[in-house]
């Protein structure tokens, strides 16, 4: 089929030139994020913080998608587990008025093992399957966890969510919380960057390109998938932990299928084939979301049409355009 050859040609072209455009992209983004608060007004800080948190969420998702070649439609479960863990620890402390910075940091970190444990349980079943089965099962498990949180009123306050969350006094101002988020996300991204370029990162790529052959090299495919699923879940949990104090509340929608779609969309928009793709995707998605929802209640329709257009006309994501343009320029082509 001609479309198939077209696509594989573009994939090959992406691999042909080994210069990773993620490096310059990440550097530029880092500078932009540092300078962002220069723009006056609080709204830009809110948008910026959201871009960073969801960007980390999408980066963690891309560990499964871009690097391992599977697509999880239930990744929000781990984001949500992280968000609830931190929220449930913080809420009584905030209400009592004695929230210290160290306690706050510990509450953020506590989200990681909880999400990791959740990912371990869900992943144990999901990694038995690949492709559409993996996608369906991850979505189904995500919804199951959503229903548990939704129905368990005595523990999670169900549909009401957990309200009245707050960063500690030291981090309370929007600009400080923004920079705090920036530092956490930057550290996590650096860690992810390191992992994706390690031998383990390449083991993931082997799985992505040819799982059957990978087994014949002596790799326990399921074990690698499970470890990666837990890693991705842990980073998603960290992102989720940052959410509650930022949004002042958490609710079950953070675990739902729509939230699971968010990192999928971001990876597609930015380019799942690039480490920095999901971050770029978060800027576009979150930016659009923040401004479009001011004018219309039909945000799903808007983003749906954007996705449709991307899938049809730009399947490699925005970075593939930049990448192609840079390479053409370097080769001296017009």
């Amino acid at each position: 089929m001609s479309q198939k050859s077209l696509l594989s040609a573009s994939l090959l072209a992406a691999a042909r030139d080994r210069l990773d455009i993620s490096i310059p992209v990440l550097l530029v983004l880092a500078v932009l994020f540092v300078l962002l608060p220069l723009i006056p007004g609080e709204f830009i800080l809110v948008v910026g913080t959201e871009i960073l948190i969801l960007g980390l969420f999408a980066l963690s998702f891309n560990l499964i998608h871009g690097f391992m070649g599977q697509i999880s439609f239930g990744h929000a479960a781990f984001f949500g587990l992280g968000a609830y863990t931190t929220a449930l620890i913080l809420q009584p402390l905030t209400a009592a008025g004695g929230l210290g910075t160290i306690t706050f940091l510990l509450a953020i970190l506590a989200a990681v093992p909880v999400s990791a444990l959740g990912a371990l349980v869900v992943g144990y079943f999901c990694v038995r399957l690949t492709g559409i089965y993996f996608a369906m099962l991850s979505m189904a498990f995500g919804e199951l966890i959503f229903y548990v949180v939704f129905s368990w009123y005595s523990f999670t306050k169900g549909d009401d969510g957990i309200q009245g969350l707050m960063p500690p006094p030291l981090l309370k101002s929007p600009v400080v919380y923004y920079y705090f988020t920036f530092v956490v996300v930057a550290l996590a991204a650096a860690l992810l960057w390191r992992i994706t370029r390690s031998p383990f990162g390449y083991t993931l790529r082997l799985l992505r390109d040819n799982p059957a052959r990978t087994a014949f090299l002596g790799i326990d495919v399921r074990r690698v998938m499970l470890v990666n699923f837990v890693l991705a879940g842990s980073f998603a949990g960290l992102a989720g932990a940052l959410w509650g104090p930022f949004a002042r509340s958490v609710s079950p929608t953070l675990l739902g299928w729509a939230q699971s779609g968010v990192p999928v969309f971001m990876s597609l928009i930015g380019g799942a084939g690039y480490f920095a793709g999901p971050l770029v995707g978060s800027i576009v998605y979150t930016g659009l979301n923040s401004y479009v929802t001011r004018f219309t209640i039909y945000w799903p329709l808007t983003i749906g049409l954007v996705i449709l257009a991307m899938v049809l006309f730009l399947p490699g994501g925005l970075l593939s355009v930049v990448d192609g343009w840079l390479k053409a320029k370097r080769r001296g082509e017009p």
Partner: peptide, 20 residues
């Protein structure tokens, strides 16, 4: 041939050796 299409020849072999 069942190889790893999106990786370079070097990355193919290097990853296999690393696994071993």
């Amino acid at each position: 041939s069942s190889i790893f299409n999106r990786l370079t020849v070097l990355e193919n072999v290097r990853s296999a050796v690393q696994v071993r």
